[in-house]
Amino acid sequence: MFKELDPILHSQLRLAVVSLLIGVKEAEFTFIKEKTNATAGNLSVQIQKLKDVGYIEVEKQFKDNYPLTTCSITKKGVEAFEKYVKALQSYLDAGKK
């Protein structure tokens, strides 16, 4: 029996964002954009979705009169990511059999 893959994480860009945030304390929007090669528009939408489900925390500030968005993963996000990786493992193991 397959474990169901979390539909929020099972998406190319959202998974990339969460995987990136899992290894750092916090990252600015520009850093995430650079590492994921995403467009600003698409990234904003996906970050909002991750924020809505409580997987990441988004802080908006101003730095030298420019808006600055900083993201960090939440405890709920870490748990969801771990669960997702485990489910992924069971898929891949099943594929090998």
Binding site: A16, S19, L92, G95
Partner: peptide, 15 residues
């Protein structure tokens, strides 16, 4: 699933 794994690995390596 394979692509997911590649995304995770790639992103973790970048950070």
């Amino acid at each position: 699933a394979q692509q997911s794994l590649e995304i995770i690995e790639g992103m973790i390596n970048k950070a």
